[in-house]
Nucleic acid binder design. Structure first.
Lengths: 190, 190
DNA sequence: CTCGTTTTGTACTGATCAATCCAAAATCAT
DNA sequence: ATGATTTTGGATTGATCAGTACAAAACGAG
């Protein structure tokens, strides 16, 4: 009935995600988004309402991918301590590697206090991840890996905060050895 | 010999700091800085080299004030566990209050990976704070409040990361109860 | 008071910002 | 092929960006 799109919307969102991830929201211009996606302005504005809308799509895409993998890990059959060790050391590798950090953390710091939509996305993701952690801890208690008296929800919040803390510390100048020491200390607290 | 300044440079830096704190670096325009300081563009550019230079001054001012207070607390005569409880609960109050968060964390996430000058400022501050924490822990070991076998430096990195983690968690949607549970868990790990 | 020096207010720079407009190109149903 | 419909590229919008130019104003030294 009409001319079809010459690009894949999902690929465009993914490319935009990488641009926002590397540069942050404010510092990434619509021109940067055109370059990153390979699309013209018209195609972008015909597909997405605005830069802000595209950012929302990109952030959702990121959250879906990253939290999906994390929850998959947490739902696995490994002992709970191993799950958390893997999870936290992955954050360390992440921060010591490409230095991009975590788009969700970046967005939370840059935007959450002024942008209810972003805050909402992050809040839902936060709850989802903490809940998966809580369930993993409860399973760990049943398996005898975690003392039955511990508050699973509190531990879940603790590990989640630890993950963000590692990222902030890395940006603040902590080296790999320091981050690994933090991970070891956190795991010993379980 | 010439016309004197009609404003106090320190007050201008302080006002600029608040503007950057509330809005971030990119999102704060030079016009915002004029409004916040009450100065004209000429006065600002005659006093500071650039927006970036003023940000550096503002960040240094923030670090000086905040880390100064924190190190004062750590150098005090209170039991070490109390020091860290106070320190972490202050972060919680901070994040649950005005919602501005911490300029150093904000700057680290928004700028550190692209801005060596900011990264340098944060790195020096990181080292200084961790060192103060390490000394407080060593003192705690001598006082019998911390088991002598613990690695003081690792614990210092841990508490510092915890502080950043609380801030990220708060931005991500964690409520006061969750943050306080995290603090309790972290303190129990000492 | 006058000269030399600095600050200050205002106007302005070119660049870039997010977003829109419009006509040409492309496609599908007929 | 034709017509209806959508995408696309490119020019363009007015606003705003960081930073500068310049002259008037304000002061201290002599």
């Amino acid at each position: 009935m009409a001319r079809p799109r010459q690009f894949d919307e999902g690929q465009a969102v993914d490319a935009a995600m990488r641009a926002f991830w590397a540069g942050g929201y404010e510092a990434t211009s619509t021109q940067d988004l055109c370059d990153a996606t390979g699309l013209g302005r018209s195609s972008i504005y015909n597909t997405f309402k605005s830069k802000h809308d595209l950012f929302g799509r990109a952030l959702s895409h990121y959250i879906e991918a990253v939290s999906g993998r994390q929850i998959e890990l947490l739902d696995g059959e490994v002992p709970v301590r191993e799950k958390f060790r893997t999870l936290l050391l992955q954050v360390v590798d992440d921060e010591c590697g490409d230095r991009l950090g975590c788009l969700a953390v970046n967005a939370g710091i840059e935007l959450a206090s002024h942008d209810p939509e972003v805050a909402g996305l992050l809040k839902r993701d936060y709850d989802r991840r903490v809940e998966a952690m809580r369930e993993a801890i409860e399973a760990g208690k049943r398996a005898g890996d975690i003392a039955p008296g511990r508050d699973a929800l509190a531990l879940a919040h603790f590990i989640h905060a630890m993950s963000g803390g590692l990222r902030v510390a890395a940006r603040g100048g902590a080296d790999r050895a320091a981050l690994e020491a933090v991970v070891a200390t956190a795991l010993a607290a379980l």
